[in-house]
């Protein structure tokens, strides 16, 4: 079973993402802030990290940079999630160490497929 660390401060969005991903057979580790996410990322063996960019306390770019410093997370895909991206947001996210980029509002029918695309091994989810 694949572990996905979801760093998201909004309860509703967290629930939505969790619901969709759990339905597709992923195990979700929720984190409600950047520092909490960084702490959990080191302990849990996440296969993928879903990172909201607009976070309180510490913004997503900083969180991404911090995550990339953790040696075990070197090859773990980090997917940035943000609403209505502006010019340069994507570049900034990739620069900070993110692997990919998903825009809100998420589309329930394609979200899981998009996430699956970033998972490295044979267990790619389709649909």
């Amino acid at each position: 079973m694949k572990n996905i660390l979801v760093i998201e401060d909004n309860e509703q969005n967290l629930y939505l993402v969790t619901f969709l991903l759990e339905q597709s057979g992923f195990r979700i580790v929720p984190a409600r802030s950047g520092p909490e996410g960084i702490e959990l990322a080191g302990r849990t063996h996440a296969d993928l990290i879903l990172l909201d960019i607009q976070l309180p306390l510490m913004d997503g770019y900083t969180v991404a940079r911090e995550l990339r410093r953790i040696p075990v997370l070197k090859d773990v895909p980090i997917i940035a999630v943000t609403s209505y991206a502006m010019v340069g947001d994507k570049e900034r996210a990739l620069e900070a160490g993110c692997t990919g980029y998903i825009e809100k509002p998420i589309n329930p029918s394609t979200f899981v497929t998009e996430i699956g695309r970033f998972l490295p091994d044979d267990k790619k989810t389709t649909g």
Binding site: Q12, N13, L16, F19, Q54, K104, P105, P108, S109
Partner: peptide, 16 residues
């Protein structure tokens, strides 16, 4: 947008 994202997301989820 945050609450809207939830509204749209959950609506989609239920509709599916």
């Amino acid at each position: 947008r945050t609450p809207l994202n939830s509204i749209i997301g959950f609506t989609g989820l239920v509709l599916q």
